[in-house]
Design a binder for these strands. Sequence first.
DNA 1: TACTTCATGTAAAAAGTTACATGATTCC
DNA 2: GGAATCATGTAACTTTTTACATGAAGTA
Lengths: 179, 179
Amino acid sequence: MNTLSYGLLSLLAKKSRSGYELMQHIQPFWQAKHSQIYPLLAQLEGLGHVDFVHVLQSDKPDKKVYTITEQGLDALRHWITLPTDDPVTRDELSLKVYSIGLVNQEQARKVLEEREVYYLKKKERFAHLLENLKQGSAKPLDELDIHDPEFGMYVLIHKASMKVDADLVWCEWMKGKLT
Amino acid sequence: MNTLSYGLLSLLAKKSRSGYELMQHIQPFWQAKHSQIYPLLAQLEGLGHVDFVHVLQSDKPDKKVYTITEQGLDALRHWITLPTDDPVTRDELSLKVYSIGLVNQEQARKVLEEREVYYLKKKERFAHLLENLKQGSAKPLDELDIHDPEFGMYVLIHKASMKVDADLVWCEWMKGKLT
DNA sequence: TACTTCATGTAAAAAGTTACATGATTCC
DNA sequence: GGAATCATGTAACTTTTTACATGAAGTA
């Protein structure tokens, strides 16, 4: 049971999903490829933390829809109370800007603008996620509380949005430093 | 040549250092243990990107002080112009807050406060780094430009500080949501 | 015709963490 | 007396990424 396994249980605690869907929905908050997720789901099933049913589809490939068990929910609740690992960020850009004086200004600017495009796309994706959440929610988002099912996603999007905004401000500030 | 290898070259481009020192100085921007760094330094030496000299010490263990070569500098300059990998962040807290409704308010608050302590310590460490940099710099930090040797570290600390501030704001906001 | 999406899986390689190993000095 | 710092290294393990494998439907 590693962190990603608990992450998958977290998603399944809200809604039953296929491995493919889990991969798509966990991406914004924990980068993981399908090749990592499928074996973990098999393992979670072996442990009794999830069940699955085969769902046959005619237009699309068949799928396995996983559901969390009572035992899985217990494991999840316990994991939350355990000390939380420190976050890990690895950003190649940090290592590059440290040596940015080695290249000329045009090249330095290019490096930053490439990253700015990335952050803008990311910001847009979070805006879409928030929009979807708003549509599906009975209450206005800022009135959600800990017991509402949308609460978790709402606070996560807020967290990610604040950080991407900080990143964009830094990019602009940095570009100013180059002129 | 992976990203960490270029990160080590980046540090060595400013100043010759031992493996132990490299480990300490790269930590705030790229998490890596000594067991990963020592083999990479041997590899960089084999490639001709770095040289080293044995430095004998009487009070402390002897060390190997690495210096970047012209070839290493060329490799570094080229790497900067290459497309930059997307940043990777893995934060167990994100996965936990998604399911925070599963535990009671005291437990939820504990999870957040634990993380807040972590961010405050981190903020302090960056404040120290900035203080050290200020001491060793001829110019005021906000007047540094791309050609000053302190520039890279200055902009990195600024980047990290902005993000940790965003994280702290989120923590407070989040704690408000729990009451 | 070629690419993307949906859907699941395995194999191999790379990257990263933890543990083992040694040993002097300094600080509490 | 015990822990932390300095200093380098290897071995084993876990985690993550990339590549291999298949195949139908829809889109450009």
